[in-house]
Amino acid sequence: MKETDIRKYAGLMKELGLTGLELTDGNGTVRLERAVPAQAEKTVYAVPETSSAPVQAAENRDYISVKSPIVGVFYAAPAEKAESFVKAGDSVNKGQTLCIIEAMKLMNEIVAEEDGVISEVCVTNGQVVEYGTELFRIRR
């Protein structure tokens, strides 16, 4: 296998967050491995309000629905035995971390898009969420 091919696959591993890759061709087998950093990378997602979202019913107009922008595992706290980022009744400010969603071993922070009060946490800690799953309702 050529060095340029190995470099291409190493770059692909980094891009996809892979820690190992094994390739076999006519000349033999090459195994690429990389160490996982102690602190996983964090990506911050702001959940924008979209105009294509369905209009909420009159009784829910005072709520902002925070939905998952990705598929992954919902975590309410930064560590297993740590206190939750937010809980029902907490006031939140724009940009404040609400939760973490782990996707492909990357910890993605979900932040509040507006100020308000958490009226409901719609999912449980450790639950797998899909794109568009309602995570929180924030009262304006």
Rank of each mutant, 00 (worst) to 15 (best):
66 V>K: 08
112 A>P: 12
90 D>E: 07
83 E>S: 07
49 E>K: 15
82 A>M: 01
55 V>R: 07
39 Q>R: 12
89 G>K: 08
23 L>W: 08
32 L>K: 06
78 P>A: 04
34 R>I: 15
48 P>H: 02
79 A>K: 12
81 K>C: 00
78 P>V: 02
82 A>E: 04
84 S>G: 02
97 T>Y: 00
24 T>K: 11
109 E>R: 15
59 E>T: 13
38 A>L: 12
46 A>S: 12
113 E>Q: 14
58 A>N: 10
111 V>Q: 02
50 T>W: 10
53 A>V: 04
97 T>A: 06
45 Y>V: 09
28 G>V: 04
42 K>P: 03
87 K>P: 04
45 Y>R: 07
102 E>Y: 10
36 V>F: 01
49 E>D: 13
36 V>P: 02
62 D>T: 10
110 I>Q: 06
43 T>K: 13
92 V>Q: 10
97 T>K: 03
77 A>D: 01
56 Q>S: 12
91 S>C: 06
36 V>H: 05
35 A>F: 00
80 E>A: 09
87 K>M: 02
63 Y>M: 15
110 I>D: 06
66 V>R: 07
80 E>F: 04
84 S>D: 10
82 A>R: 02
35 A>H: 04
105 K>E: 11
34 R>Y: 07
77 A>S: 11
66 V>Q: 12
57 A>N: 13
88 A>G: 07
77 A>P: 02
110 I>E: 04
93 N>T: 09
113 E>V: 09
99 C>D: 05
61 R>C: 11
41 E>L: 05
69 P>D: 09
53 A>R: 09
114 E>R: 11
107 M>P: 06
73 V>I: 09
104 M>A: 14
51 S>C: 03
90 D>T: 06
66 V>M: 12
30 V>Q: 06
47 V>A: 03
28 G>C: 06
37 P>T: 08
111 V>Y: 01
44 V>E: 00
71 V>P: 05
49 E>N: 10
63 Y>F: 12
99 C>N: 06
112 A>N: 10
76 A>F: 00
88 A>H: 05
71 V>A: 06
101 I>Y: 08
105 K>L: 13
61 R>F: 00
88 A>T: 13
106 L>E: 12
80 E>I: 01
64 I>T: 14
104 M>L: 13
60 N>Y: 09
61 R>L: 14
50 T>C: 05
68 S>Q: 04
47 V>H: 02
52 S>P: 08
44 V>T: 13
39 Q>G: 03
76 A>P: 00
50 T>H: 11
69 P>R: 01
78 P>F: 01
41 E>C: 01
53 A>K: 09
103 A>K: 03
95 G>M: 07
27 N>C: 09
32 L>G: 05
108 N>T: 13
60 N>S: 10
84 S>N: 12
112 A>C: 09
71 V>W: 00
40 A>Q: 10
109 E>Q: 15
66 V>N: 06
56 Q>Y: 06
100 I>D: 02
112 A>I: 06
87 K>S: 14
69 P>C: 03
100 I>L: 10
80 E>C: 00
46 A>F: 02
101 I>G: 07
68 S>G: 07
69 P>E: 05
73 V>A: 04
107 M>K: 09
82 A>D: 10
74 F>Y: 12
85 F>K: 05
85 F>V: 02
87 K>T: 11
67 K>V: 11
31 R>S: 15
52 S>N: 13
106 L>I: 15
25 D>H: 03
85 F>I: 00
56 Q>T: 12
113 E>W: 05
74 F>I: 04
100 I>W: 01
29 T>I: 08
66 V>I: 15
26 G>S: 11
